[in-house]
Design a protein around this nucleic acid. Structure first.
Lengths: 245, 245
DNA sequence: ACAAATTTGTTCGTATGTATG
DNA sequence: ACATACATACGAACAAATTTG
């Protein structure tokens, strides 16, 4: 246990603070990489020669400050850096990831032609039952899964979009190849819920941690809806940022 | 059990779909009011004469579509209407609630003078250690708890704000009484996490359901930060809406 | 479906030191 | 000097979630 070392007692600094500071220093210096598991509370309390409560107090501090993530029954982990995801009219997955000095990538999970249900039809300005391509796509930043996007695209206007997407799993590129070089996000709705088991697996996260859920409508320069996307994000790794003019 | 009635089997429509549709119809027609508890899965399975798994499939469908809320160990409930909470430069709690035809109110939980820590000082454009008033406020819509806001206000600029707040638990009104008739929201950060036990109690929600977390900076007309607010919202009752110009 | 082992979460109780009035 | 409040620290036991067999 390299973390442990004798602690000066009665020196005016609470033991839990000293412990938190040592762990923090290891994390900030990179000696404890993001995602790595910390020793158990029992191990730490033995290592530092303090009571388990004292360790827990230190962990609570680190957890509150977002440096570690504690999961009941599993252990404690060095927190991953959160992706700052600006929500605005030019919200593009790959641009946002690249702007954070990470490498974006994506994998198409499913491509399916369906008839638009009530809600999707309304948002796309179509009649119910019109053909829509449903694209499920897993998005990555630096090979870590970030989101699962379910995109609904009207096939009446973009009949060749499925073909383009199977060639290159980028929504923006597929639209460009179908004659729409630019689009903008009109509205985004944000909420949160617990993940389905499948979502938790795909996002590589615990089932007891929440996901952020967005529903967005993208429109062409004339204001005509071209896509409705519903996406889930691992909440622990994501922070949406809304700048107000 | 008025919900139950014989179901046509082998008619090409899955039993769980028929069950889900019946329950949905009752909810949409208002026969099952928001927040009321549904019969247990065991009762429903007896009532419809199907296996409990079939009921569960129907409930999962309804739950995914946001019509019901299922809580392990407690039961299933008709989902409350979600509050649509627009995020923009004029984000004001009471105005938003009123715009949804609900009655806003608030209760101050705590008022405390503290020294600004690193993060708050940075966001407020102060030096660390400067006096800041921390206000914890529970916000209601139609007497239902909606959010817990923790507001940080620089006392150097607003020395009398605590007094105003104890008279009227509205942040906007307190600022107005302290000579700031108008302010705007500059940036909002949104994420989600699980609630603390206290948060779950105050929000009247299950501890196994997530909360949305916002961090916002409000500035005066000159762009000077006047308040940092960190708020948690019951995710099941809240949807943030971001319109992009 | 169940059981065991592991790990964090919660709640008791006790004791000590420090700041405050 | 004394009482009080508060944060710190330790100990024990049990609850709850997760993983594994």
């Amino acid at each position: 246990m390299t973390l442990a070392a004798p602690l000066p007692r009665g020196g005016g600094v609470a033991l839990w603070r000293q412990i938190a500071q040592r762990i923090e220093a290891r994390i900030l210096s990179g000696q404890l990489a993001a995602g790595t598991r910390l020793p158990t509370e029992a191990e730490l309390s033995r290592g530092f020669g303090v009571n388990r409560h004292t360790i827990r107090r230190a962990m609570e501090d680190l957890s509150m400050r977002g440096l570690v993530r504690v999961e009941q029954g599993r252990g404690s982990f060095v927190a991953e850096e959160v992706v700052e995801y600006p929500i605005g009219s030019r919200t593009r997955f790959s641009e946002i990831i690249r702007a954070q000095a990470r490498e974006p990538s994506g994998r198409i999970l499913r491509l399916k032609e369906v008839e638009a249900d009530q809600r999707i039809a309304e948002l796309l300005g179509l009649r119910r039952g019109r053909p829509v391509l449903v694209v499920e796509r897993l998005g990555f930043a630096d090979r870590r899964p970030i989101n699962i996007g379910t995109h609904h695209i009207p096939l009446g206007r973009f009949p060749r979009i499925a073909e383009e997407l199977s060639r290159n799993p980028s929504i923006t590129a597929a639209f460009a190849a179908c004659g729409l070089p630019d689009y903008r996000r009109q509205v985004t709705r944000i909420t949160a819920r617990m993940p389905t088991p499948e979502e938790a697996t795909l996002l590589g996260q615990s089932r007891s941690r929440p996901v952020l859920l967005t529903e967005a409508v993208n429109v062409d320069p004339e204001g005509q809806p071209v896509e409705v996307s519903i996406a889930v994000y691992a909440a622990a790794r994501m922070q949406f940022v809304v700048e107000s003019a």
